[in-house]
């Protein structure tokens, strides 16, 4: 694993790599929420191709969002609610 990093960033010392990981970790939400700029996306995607642990963190964060988006059940609006709203509006005029 070490050698791979060295190939990808021949001149990057450990601190730089670590700083990149930190930056990427701070961008996870932006990425999964579609709020990252195209520059940020490029940086992010490039980094996770080279860094397994950041790649995994990204997967986990997507999974977490997916649990809410895809599995949280919506509650059903009571049928009477629209009528109640209209009635209350007419009442208070």
């Amino acid at each position: 694993m070490e050698s791979k990093f060295t190939e990808a960033y021949p001149k990057a010392p450990d601190e730089t790599r670590q700083a990149d990981c930190e930056k990427v970790s701070g961008m996870l939400d932006l990425m999964i929420d579609g709020e990252a700029s195209s520059e940020e996306q490029t940086f992010f995607n490039h980094h996770i191709e080279e860094c397994v642990s950041c790649f995994e963190n990204h997967q986990k964060q997507k999974l977490l969002k997916g649990l809410v988006t895809g599995h949280l059940k919506r509650v059903i609006v009571p049928k009477s609610l629209v009528q109640s709203i209209k009635a209350r509006i007419q009442e208070t005029l």
């Binding site: 919506r74 509650v75 709203i85 208070t92």
Partner: peptide, 24 residues
Amino acid sequence: LYNFAYRLTLDEDDANDLVQETYL
């Protein structure tokens, strides 16, 4: 809106009231 109200109040009656009040 009703779903949001329900997730905030965690109670159907409260959600109902909150939504009515909001529309009012």
